[in-house]
Design a binder for these strands. Structure first.
Lengths: 328, 328
DNA sequence: AAAAATATGTCAATCGTTTGACATAAAATT
DNA sequence: AATTTTATGTCAAACGATTGACATATTTTT
């Protein structure tokens, strides 16, 4: 059995109450006793049982992270940053890969509740608003509208696509396609398509939307991209994520199209990984680390002041154009 | 406050004991009562408090995953697979990004202990054997020797590099370099260098080792690779991971070397991501999903039969050569 | 009709920790 | 020397669920 409070008390020659008081710094305590207790704890390598503590009302210091998965480098970097920041603040993280699965996400929510997490950072959103509202837990959301009382953090999606379109225009493109999800669901990411359409009007070019969904298989995406390139002859493609942009580059190569001469491509996300291992790709970089910092900050605020009114519901962080050779 | 046992009992019109019995299927129970209780649980959306249950000695159904991080696609895919498999078996996962940090890893171990995890899957190894032995927890390890009583799962590292070398030889290479970690620490991955050296002897070529560490920065890696390509003029490079292989391809392009004509490159890992987004790269593919399945299977065995003697300490799974254009 | 099996309830202890109430003793302040 | 402050101890009740002991019905089987 693991070491417990009574063992520490015995070793230190004090009562359990005193040990507990030392740990929780509660009531009067002499330096001598504190020292005795701390050394006993060290010698026995004592770790208070989180479960028992939190039954008493103490916080579990546990956060649930719900994301579609971590194989997309964007989510991998975001989740890793969030975990690191939380760990530094003494929090632990339960990882939930919800994929595109409603039932799995619902099961995760129940499980997180049963495990007394202090809060949730949600970046996957297969469920309706209702199930999130009913939780009665501090939640913050990345890039999706979950419910009226859940703050959202996102990058400046509108400005990002505006940058992208302007970059292509300045590089001389005339047939600029939008490649991404075309469904508008009331989420911040809807601004990407909005920005594209507005800029088309503004800059007077004809909008062309080629629709691929996040959940489409690679084969399907490749097919769609192949058809677009072959039939519609775009000279510029704005992609709503970097991975899709790379598929475009690969299909272009197969078709013998020269990038950037025949075709210019720009992505979205700007992860370290893509910038390192696909350094040719121009992209719109989301400030991943800042997003992570803000998500954590807002969540911890909600946790420590649950009934405090939210002054701001939507936090928009700036994006950066990273120009490379695919739009040279 | 969350719904608890007493609330369910009241709603169902039975005693708490009965509700607990229904949940744990313990003792005599009529279908009628079971039904009453289950409907009450559903109506109230009741979730038993895991903490309280596991104070009673029930398992937390919680597993700690210790890995260097998840931004490397190999670990991302492995961790995601492990999580999915565990979730399907009713387990939850605490994510630990140990990086290259001894202290962080130690802190994670303490934390996992305090949170009463049922076991640990370890893929990061900054710590010595001792700290892992002292845990008194079921552990399984990926690719590293942790301790005499911790089973190891790894791919067939030796065969992998042997495949790689043979592939380069068959493609006509004569100056084949090994690019990776050259330190031997008693881990299964040591077999990679061993295989290279043995094959050099066997096939009668001069071994050249270019050392880059997993923890080196990208800049440093690039510099090392640049020098190797420029000074030593290899015509084939065996890399111990795909990401490094891609750096080689990028540096080669900068130097105007034609791949595969002037230089052939082969990687190691074979993640879905690299195969999709760097489909040009020849590589040795680890069976990631099978590794995940086996790690979980072994861990759950250790958890359910903790004192059962281990019949086998090292599980080696086969690798596959995936031939593409960088070794054409 | 008696015996056995099934079904439910009451009560209390337990898991490890926290915390308030209360007692008491030593040290510091008047 | 009297009073206040500081330091520690004892005791017991929580937190929410589990489970064994025991009692008492209600069914089912002989």
């Amino acid at each position: 059995m693991a070491i417990k409070l009574t063992d520490v008390a015995k070793k230190a020659g004090v009562s359990v109450t005193t040990v507990s008081r030392v740990i929780n710094n509660h009531g009067y305590l002499s330096d001598k006793t504190k020292h005795k207790v701390f050394t006993a704890m060290k010698e026995l390598n004592y770790q208070p049982n989180s479960l028992a503590r939190s039954l008493q009302g103490k916080k579990m210091k546990l956060i649930g992270l719900i994301f579609p998965g971590i194989t997309n480098p964007f989510f991998a970097e975001l989740v890793q940053d969030i975990e690191s920041i939380l760990f530094a603040k003494g929090y632990k993280v339960i990882l939930c890969n919800a994929q595109q699965n409603k039932e799995k996400e619902r099961a995760y929510l129940r499980m997180l509740l049963a495990n007394q997490v202090d809060g949730i950072i949600a970046g996957a959103h297969n469920l309706g608003i209702k199930e999130y509202q009913e939780l009665g837990l501090p939640i913050v959301s990345f890039d999706r509208k979950l419910s009226d009382n859940v703050p959202i953090v996102s990058c400046d999606n509108y400005q990002g696509i505006k940058f992208a379109v302007h970059d292509l225009i300045q590089s001389g493109c005339q047939r600029i396609f939008f490649l991404g999800n075309k469904q508008l669901k009331g989420n911040p990411t809807d601004q990407r398509l909005r920005a594209y359409l507005n800029e088309a009007k503004e800059l007077d070019f004809i909008p062309h939307i080629c629709s691929v969904a996040f959940s489409d298989s690679i084969l399907l995406k490749n097919m769609t991209i192949h058809e677009m390139l072959q039939k519609d002859h775009p000279d510029g493609v704005v992609c709503t994520d970097d991975l899709t942009a790379i598929l475009v580059l690969q299909e272009a190569r197969k078709l013998g199209l020269k990038v950037p001469d025949d075709l210019k491509v720009i992505g979205f996300d700007g992860t370290k990984e893509i910038q390192t291992y696909h350094s040719e790709l121009s992209t719109i970089a989301q400030p991943i680390n800042d997003i992570a910092i803000l998500l954590v900050k807002l969540l911890l605020q909600r946790i420590s002041h649950p009934q405090q009114e939210l002054t701001k519901m939507h936090y928009i962080l700036p994006v950066k154009l990273i120009k490379s050779t695919t739009t040279a």
